[in-house]
Computed example of a mutant assay.
Amino acid sequence: MSAPVAPPTDADRRRWARYLVEERAEGAVYQRLADRRSGEEREILLSLADAERRHEQHWLDLLGEEPPRLPRAGMRSRMLGWMAGRFGSIFVLALAQSAEARSPYDEEQYATPAMRADEKVHYEVVRGLAARGRRRLSGSFRAAVFGANDGLVSNLALVLGIGATGVSSSFVLFSGVAGLLAGALSMGAGEFVSVRSQRELLAATQANDDADATAADLDIDENELALVYRARGVGEEEALARARRVVAAAQAGSRRAATGPIGTLGGDHEIVGNDWTAAISSFLLFASGAIIPVLPWIFGLSGTTAVVMALVLVGAALLSTGAMVGILSGGPPLRRAVRQLLIGFGAAAITYVLGLLFGVGAV
């Protein structure tokens, strides 16, 4: 038998009211996310919202009725609700995953075992939904973070290094703009060549369906046709089974859609994207990061003031991108943000010291 539960106190009722508003806020988050999705993900999110309403009802039953005054939901819950209603993005699911990881019910005597189990299941469900979004976002997000961060760090290092030599502010500005254009053009051109080359390489290895179209006229049997599939990496038994289906369909005067042409049975090559789109996006991403260290000089600042302002702007940008990486990866955002900041400032510090050395030498 379970231990008897002590009569509720005023502190207990205040805690129940807090649980009530948190469950209500979490249910609203899942409902808003579901409203922005369709299919299986929508059904999953609606189920989570229903579970949160059950938890909410549990605390209402204990309270007897809804208190005339309820506490406000926590900052995290309010922020999630605001984001879910406007973005419905992977960031909301990633933050919700972190929130579900910290269940208050493990030590709560008035929570039921089913509620404790629900919270653990919710964490896994939200983690799975967030993982789907991370997989969809991983390639483009990696490119965005890499491009913008590269622009931030490289151009900050450039303007600090040039500025440390003692040259005029106009020369620092010119160097920063030149670095922006050179880096952005280099990134764009490199991405264009990379994507175009990969597409050409894949096109050269893409099989065609010529043999399939003439299978009825070929003086071959299934064993010989199976060699085509085996040459493309298909196992011996599977290759023979596919060959039999193709030959049978060809001899019957029809091609089965379920079987597909020979060219598609060896494994389709995924197209890696449009070369111009990749080039333009890389150019813009790099430029969006590289413009930030130059802003103080663009607005007429100079000397130490410009350097400090550039460090502040770039530092804020590095902290933001690092925190976003942390949120999406499910890790601690602060740690990721500080890591990004230290790496960026470390690279800039090296070039600044070199600039000082060259400046002293020039004098």
Rank of each mutant, 00 (worst) to 15 (best):
W82Q: 13
W59C: 02
P332F: 07
N155F: 05
A96M: 12
V325L: 14
R42T: 01
A231V: 00
F141N: 08
S329E: 08
G322S: 05
L80Y: 06
L160Y: 00
E66W: 00
A348T: 11
G331Q: 14
F286I: 10
E270Y: 04
E124H: 12
A34S: 07
T305Q: 09
V167A: 02
L80N: 09
Q206V: 12
G161W: 01
A111R: 06
S282C: 08
T321I: 12
D219G: 08
L341W: 03
A182R: 03
W82C: 10
A347Y: 06
G346H: 08
A28P: 01
I280K: 05
Y19W: 12
A317M: 02
D35Y: 03
V153R: 03
R127Q: 03
G88R: 04
I327N: 13
R245E: 14
R13S: 12
R232Y: 07
Q206F: 04
W276M: 10
P293I: 03
V314C: 00
G74E: 11
V145Y: 07
E119W: 06
G190L: 02
P67W: 03
A164I: 00
A101S: 14
L334R: 10
G263S: 15
P333Q: 11
T321D: 05
G39R: 13
R42I: 03
A252G: 13
E66A: 04
S288F: 10
G179D: 08
G344C: 04
I44T: 12
D106V: 12
V307Q: 06
L356R: 03
L60E: 10
A216Y: 13
A258H: 02
H122V: 05
R116L: 02
L45P: 05
A231P: 00
M324E: 11
G273D: 02
P261E: 14
A143G: 07
L129Q: 02
Q206G: 03
G355E: 01
I343A: 14
A349R: 09
M79A: 15
S47G: 15
I90N: 12
R255C: 07
A49T: 05
R196H: 13
Y229I: 02
D35F: 03
A203V: 09
A101Q: 11
R14E: 15
S281V: 12
S169D: 15
R116K: 04
A241I: 01
A3Q: 10
H55D: 03
G151R: 10
G161V: 01
L319E: 01
G74R: 13
A215I: 14
H55E: 09
A3H: 09
L152M: 11
L60N: 05
N149Q: 09
V126Y: 00
H269R: 14
A347P: 11
